[in-house]
Design a protein around this nucleic acid. Structure first.
Lengths: 262, 262
DNA sequence: CATCGAATTCCGCAACACGAAACCCGTGTT
DNA sequence: AACACGGGTTTCGTGTTGCGGAATTCGATG
């Protein structure tokens, strides 16, 4: 009876906690428990629990000195990540179209997820036999050119943590040897682009270059994917150089300083 | 056993829903129910409910065509609001210090809340008798110079909605007549600053000017408050002009076009 | 038409969120 | 100093309501 609003699937505690989150966020500055409770007409105890939970999840911050709550780091991180992704997508789109026309192969854009890369955009070549990924798909880092491009530019500690995770074998050619992977990554760091030959999908290959943010952190990568048979070494090298160039251009517009070579 | 982590006050549904929110947000693009469920190891039914709830609260968006979820408008709105507030605070701070020294009275910065103004910063004059508000305090719109400055520049529809609400009487001098208030607001719109004399706090007065965002919307206001006895008309006029000037400068840096006079 | 995977709905159970009230603590008051 | 007050924290018994397994529908795909 209290809220037979419509959707029988809404979970009340969650809904109310989101209202609390919203109120605190929109308040613009520190707000105290009682104020939230009064404003939202939610009993003090319950409000207290929500504030605790939201704080524990870092969505809110609790100023112990004043006993008041503010927007937390998690919210800001999410907001930044979101803004960053849309910015990357916007910046990359024209270059992707251009690349697709230049090589007449599918061009992909992916961001670094947690241990994976996630496709956030792609422009398909207009050919009958073409490489298919779908926006939103996740793929392992170590078996894709996109992932390898990102891995190669990750800070050492994070790269190691990444490679410590179990590496899934996607095809018979997927690299699984730590040594071999690290050798390749050093190579990628030197040349500025990564290649992958049938390691993620049989018969397919991919060439990728990293996109770095203002801190030089590889937030995303750009790639061209094609059937192995259509991409001879010479062409791959040319594509790699182009990708590196274009990705660097996007990085620059994200505020990244051009990395000093060697 | 599952999560006796520490805080006995965290409510599980909320915590888990926040994890869902975070996952979807960080994913960078549309993600489907099953993917979320698998990734977070939360049963499908439960995940479904959280996604529904988050969507109902506009924290997520549900693409009916693909049956996938993305970050929703609410999150973006909160993020924008937060960024805007911190930007305003940062931009205003130096000017506020300057103003405080110039008049040797307390300078206040407030944003428009829902039917109220909320102090987000203030610089106190170093005098024994000084006006006191506290960061985070809310005051009514109609009884403060800050509020009147904002009201005067609100779009007509919103201003009317605002004035339709019951108007609390803070002191014997608080304006309560709709006619009188609207007359004053027109005056404020002309002169570019608002005054309030003992209408909010006995013996205190305040002069405020609006800060407009890139759409010309009054998101905040800047004010000088002082004991009535220390602020004769002539000084008040001078302060008003300065406030208008400085607030306009901040507005400009927020991307606002200077409003065409009359 | 059959099949599969995904999303939605159903339903019975007990976990656990709820909120009143008690408690604690720091502030300001007499 | 004692006191009341307001705000935050803790306790605790109750019954709501969130849970998740299973059944069902939906929508692609072959």
């Amino acid at each position: 009876m209290p809220k037979t609003t419509e959707n029988p699937y809404v979970v009340q505690p969650v809904m109310k906690a989101l209202k609390v989150l919203e109120l605190v966020a929109r308040h613009g500055h520190e707000i105290a428990l009682t104020a939230v409770s009064k404003e939202l007409r939610i009993p003090k105890t319950t409000t207290f629990r929500y504030l605790q939970t939201l704080t524990a999840a870092k969505f809110l911050d609790h100023n112990r000195a004043t006993d008041r709550y503010t927007l937390g780091p998690q919210m800001r991180a999410i907001a930044r990540a979101d803004a960053s992704v849309s910015k990357i997508r916007t910046l990359a789109r024209p270059a992707m179209t251009e690349l697709m026309h230049e090589f007449n192969e599918t061009v992909n854009l992916a961001v670094k997820g947690n241990g994976t890369i996630v496709y956030i955009d792609l422009i398909e070549a207009n050919r009958s036999l073409r490489m298919q990924a779908r926006i939103g798909d996740s793929h392992p880092m170590h078996s894709t050119a996109l992932g390898k491009a990102i891995l190669a530019f990750l800070p050492e500690a994070e790269r190691q943590r990444q490679l410590d995770l179990p590496l899934t074998e996607r095809t018979g050619r997927t690299l699984l040897e730590r040594e071999e992977i690290e050798r390749q990554l050093r190579q990628v760091a030197r040349t500025g682009y990564a290649t992958e030959m049938g390691e993620n999908e049989d018969g397919a290959m991919c060439i990728g270059a990293p996109i770095l943010d203002e801190n030089g952190y590889p937030v995303a990568a750009l790639s061209i994917s094609a059937p192995l048979m259509r991409m001879p070494h010479s062409l791959a090298a040319k594509a790699g150089a182009r990708l590196r160039e274009i990705a660097a251009g996007i990085s620059a517009r994200l505020g990244s300083q051009p990395a000093a070579a060697g």
